[in-house]
């Protein structure tokens, strides 16, 4: 503030410290207040209580045949549920993980090898990869292929080729019974 024509800035030296202290205290107080007021107006953009409460989805697995996949919605996102064939499981388990961009064993990504549950969002820039339908292109590794920027995922949903940095994410889920799971 270059408003140096205010008379108190040329006041006597003895009053100076106390006055400066007062001014600083008031300014600091005001800054703290402004900060606390800002928080609710930022935090209101976070998910609301009803949105958070809706964060689980239950899926019935009984209609899914080996080799088939379904897509369910969880938190507004697609979740891939794929019942893998023995060949697909073997393909996923046989990969030498040292060759992977995001090294992870297949066991670490599934609870039961038959059921692969993934968040269906490409880790590159958020498109939904193809490969759920039998007619889809599944990429060079038999898993999924993201058409936006050409990322290839294998039968464990791991990134094998293309720009994506990470494997397809595995959501938190629990088996309620042999034939049903709850995601979230």
């Amino acid at each position: 503030m270059s408003a140096d024509n205010s008379p108190q800035q040329h006041g006597p030296a003895d009053g100076e410290t106390r006055r400066d202290f007062l001014f600083l205290t008031a300014a600091a107080f005001g800054a703290v207040g402004a900060g606390s007021v800002a928080w609710p107006f930022i935090d209101q953009m976070n998910p609301a209580a009803d949105t958070l409460a809706m964060s689980t989805t239950e899926v019935d697995l009984s209609p899914i045949e080996p080799g088939q996949a379904i897509t369910v919605m969880w938190q507004g996102k697609p979740v891939f549920v794929r019942r893998r064939t023995p060949e697909e499981i073997k393909m996923a388990e046989d990969v030498d993980i040292t060759t992977l961009r995001d090294p992870q064993t297949d066991e670490a990504r599934v609870q039961k090898p038959e059921w692969l549950i993934l968040v269906g969002i490409c880790t590159h820039l958020g498109c939904v990869p193809q490969g759920q339908k039998s007619t889809d292109v599944r990429g060079e590794f038999g898993g999924w292929f993201c058409p936006c920027h050409g990322s290839h995922y294998d039968t464990s949903g791991r990134i094998r080729k293309g720009p994506a940095p990470k494997n397809l994410a595995v959501p938190k889920y629990t088996f309620l019974s042999d034939k049903s799971i709850r995601i979230g």
């Binding site: 008379p7 108190q8 007062l22 001014f23 205290t25 008031a26 005001g30 207040g33 606390s36």
Partner: peptide, 19 residues
């Protein structure tokens, strides 16, 4: 908070207006 802040501001205002 506001009551304390008002008190502080009043003190500041008085100091400034003292001249």
């Amino acid at each position: 908070y506001l009551v304390i802040f008002a008190g502080l501001l009043y003190a500041v205002k008085r100091k400034i207006w003292a001249k």
